[in-house]
Design a protein around this nucleic acid. Sequence first.
DNA 1: GTTACAAAAGTTATCGTTAACACATTAAAA
DNA 2: TTTTAATGTGTTAACGATAACTTTTGTAAC
Lengths: 350, 350
Amino acid sequence: MGKVKPKKQATLSDIAANVGVAPMTVSRVMNGNGYVSEETREKVMRVAKEMNYRRNGLAHNLKRQRTETIGLVLGDISNPYSTELANAIRETLSAHGYNLFICISEHSAKEDIAAFESLVNHSVDGLIVATRSNKGGDEYLKGIVESNVPVVLIGRDFQHPSVDFVSTDNLNGGFEATRHLIDLGHRRIGFIGATLSGGSSLKRLQGYLNALEQHQIPVDERLITGRKESISEVPGYSTEKMGYEGMKRLLSLPERPTAVFARNDFTAIGAMTAIKEAGLRIPEDIAIVGFDDIPLAIHTSPTLTTVRQPMRLQGQFAAQMLLQRIESSETEERREQILNCELIIRKSTV
Amino acid sequence: MGKVKPKKQATLSDIAANVGVAPMTVSRVMNGNGYVSEETREKVMRVAKEMNYRRNGLAHNLKRQRTETIGLVLGDISNPYSTELANAIRETLSAHGYNLFICISEHSAKEDIAAFESLVNHSVDGLIVATRSNKGGDEYLKGIVESNVPVVLIGRDFQHPSVDFVSTDNLNGGFEATRHLIDLGHRRIGFIGATLSGGSSLKRLQGYLNALEQHQIPVDERLITGRKESISEVPGYSTEKMGYEGMKRLLSLPERPTAVFARNDFTAIGAMTAIKEAGLRIPEDIAIVGFDDIPLAIHTSPTLTTVRQPMRLQGQFAAQMLLQRIESSETEERREQILNCELIIRKSTV
DNA sequence: GTTACAAAAGTTATCGTTAACACATTAAAA
DNA sequence: TTTTAATGTGTTAACGATAACTTTTGTAAC
């Protein structure tokens, strides 16, 4: 008793058989197109409801050759900006009748590939990729693109003639952040979180270097800390540790910096911890600038000067570009959108 | 020139035609089952590569009647605990060869339904739902469950004989948090963020009430703030505002509380802002306890005493329960997992 | 030389849905 | 009354992949 047989989902044919019409008629009722008499429609609707009918999306999509679904690959969803990005994308897509599936890929090329694969396997109509570049992932991505799946990248360093690209101006952001410190009179300015990954952090470092150069401040290599290995690069909250350790190293220099620019806010927060531990004051002894303007930045003490990225805008642009690519049959030129970022001055520098 | 025709994806038949074999042979090569001569295999592989073949997942899944994909519906991905949850689920599933698609549904029943629908449409093998309960969503969910899609809920208040349930012990968490304050000698303890939504926050409030009762402290309704409307309930960073406003109200009482218990950490942080603005000290003038132990909690000043939820564990349990339901054909009894939470004492209370 | 069987391929039908076409029936227009 | 058009419904053939079955070939055993 009580053992229910695993009854399968009802299909169009089941309903058709039950009502005594052709499956096609049921299909017409369900989709509300074509001619169906009111009488038949009602009967079909009733039976469909009774049998708890639900259209099989696989068959439906297979037949229609589109899914109206977009895949988004995010690394590091811990980072609040990923959230904003995802929401902006979802809202834009939703307004155009598209669904959004998100896959997470932290750390590795393997996870990147797994995410791409599962999304492409489900025949998403397009892909937005917001993870960092890596060799295996890029290769796989190339394959996807060349099998004609529309792809838009957000901040991922991967060039391809038919892949659009959205990013913030990390170069200028790094420049502004550093210039702000220079304007405040700092001359020994450290950089925390350099990697050779070639991603956004490298651009930020370059902006830092440019600002120094423009103000004729010689670059002191010892003031630039980071890691060589970009492979096991860990994002989000864990870069806090990087900031902490990087700052420790800077503090141990014979002549320590009077200001530091951290590759992102988590790194900056780690650095702040190290500074406080050393009994120094922020910003009096050491000023600090972060990057991203995460919500936490207004809660640190002191509040953190940082560079804000327009995440919502990036998401909106990416979604719009993708929709355009999907809906136009023409093969278009690669497009690039570099958005400005904004220096947010708080108490950690003044 | 340069105008590329939108070449369609190659299919098994295309390859078959090209090589001069039957589609089935190509299928055998691709899936590595059945007998195929080495010679044929190589030829097929070569052509497949040339044509950039990629299996059509829709057709594949339609035929096999399963997708090895699980859908996760998250509200409020801003909240770091959602991240942990998602990662734990993903890791567990991945170890069993399942993919994870995440859909976001903030705020409304409409978005809940949209998320359910798009996941079910893609024939996910099962569903994990971690959004708050709401009428429309629950109704739709019922329909899904009754069309035999395995579903597991995380912290969502919705009872159904074949839907498993995972949650933390919010009742006891609220109790412990309040008792901690009582143990410190507080007698006028406020509660911020009560809603009538019937979700976890109500349980936390109940725990608060139970603790007061057990210590013979009379309940003062004025010390309990919150909102009546549960519909437009906004999660995540935005509940900070709720905490701020709630605290303002408590501070304006003729006899203000000496301690407050906030429904979650964001609310607590909002409350802290209000306390500081009023020129009061934490915890000397007002002690405060939050709930969730978000990463931010160790960065507030003072650091925040809070109740930690075992998010990873919840995710793991949910994923395991779901996999069991999927893999066993028997219809099982409803199972429930209530996990303990842990009081984390920091500087905001002592 | 027949039997036996593994190996290598092909054939057919199906998963559930729907576009395209075909065929009735009815109603309106000429 | 005949023509025309609209309405209601059925049939067929895909979408792309594959399970289940059949056929053919090769070859070793008796």
